[in-house]
Design a protein around this nucleic acid. Sequence first.
DNA 1: CGCCTTTCGTTGTAAATACAACAGACTTTC
DNA 2: GAAAGTCTGTTGTATTTACAACGAAAGGCG
Lengths: 222, 222
Amino acid sequence: MEKYLEILKGSKLFANVAEPEMISMLACLGSRERQYNEGEFVFRRGDRVDSVSVLAEGGLIVQSDDYWGNRSIITSVGVGELFGVGYLAGEAIMNDVVAAEDSTVISFDAKRVLTVCPSACPRHAQVVRNLVFALSEANLRLVTKLGHIQKRTTREKLMSYLSLMAKKTGSSTFTIPFNRQQLADFLSVDRSAMSAELCRMRDDGLLRFNRNSFTLMESGRA
Amino acid sequence: MEKYLEILKGSKLFANVAEPEMISMLACLGSRERQYNEGEFVFRRGDRVDSVSVLAEGGLIVQSDDYWGNRSIITSVGVGELFGVGYLAGEAIMNDVVAAEDSTVISFDAKRVLTVCPSACPRHAQVVRNLVFALSEANLRLVTKLGHIQKRTTREKLMSYLSLMAKKTGSSTFTIPFNRQQLADFLSVDRSAMSAELCRMRDDGLLRFNRNSFTLMESGRA
DNA sequence: CGCCTTTCGTTGTAAATACAACAGACTTTC
DNA sequence: GAAAGTCTGTTGTATTTACAACGAAAGGCG
């Protein structure tokens, strides 16, 4: 566990909690550490989640395959981020969470995080507040994704996603954390159709790209 | 404010908080009450939200119009539900919140809810926990909606939404809280195309409907 | 290097959707 | 109860997308 103190310190869950206090809370919160190999399932649809989990190493994909095998990528999870916190109210989880690479997950007993000893652990209340903020951000991510997907055409979806990425990185040139198939799954469109549309957008002078590196052109908004 | 005590008592925010304690907290949390007429904006895109709001009367729609005027309905808000809680982390709100009918909103100062006097107000910690659960549920709603929208065809989107409604109400006959245009906006499809698809589904024996009352047929899953 | 696997672009066709326009049913209002 | 307005269903056309299939390029590995 000590290995990951730095990461935990930088995670949303322990924002504004000093290291000594954090360490004293780790035991109190029932923390557990577990490794996952690439491709392994962290959660499966139908599981009940009774923990608050932080990714300490690696990368995760939150996805969902429907009855006919169409895969939808809900979101990706990076180091230091919380996940699975959308199901604390007791509902069964609706998506699979899969390790995109070898990963380490640190999880905390949800009941202890939420209900035990806010006085005994001096900064416990802060952790609960952090949880509120983390959930709030998760909400924002989902709404943002909805904003992309609700666009009517593939080109609009791509523009919506790519222009947000440019805004987030503060540069018109950036790389995305998806390959073509994953991007298509994320935007909920067909890969080959999306690939073709990307090329048309390039030919129309909207952008340039190479693999997962993109550059948006001034001409913009078509 | 007293008018709405019953509703507040039944709201997610004050679950497991006895009425006397709740009343003593109302002032402490900086509660405000405000009326909105049908069509009036409760929040506009770009607003900063520094409050936790509960709908006491009426009904709200969370929606977003894009640059070209296409409207997307994110969700509807019923009496007793929290809204706007996805933006506590400080980001600007991305959607408009509009009163679908004459409505009353009670809001609480977010900073006080999150940071003040967890000891002075005996059940303050419970309210913060409730907020976590409410956010968790909001997350779930969004993920559920994503599940509908990510379906590739209009028929699949309709089946996804309607079968969930049947499951939620526990009956194969139920009414939905949307008219056709709103349902189309919610599922992010064209209204007339959706209307036509609904009729084809009826002709295929999948369901029956009249206005916003639907009945799913045994034959199911096409 | 050569083989194998994965990823990406390309194309043609069938299917699905958006859009526009209109008619009928139902509501509201005066 | 007539008029105006709203909601829903219907149809035809142009556009967009999904699907399948394939070849080329890139990366991994013995």
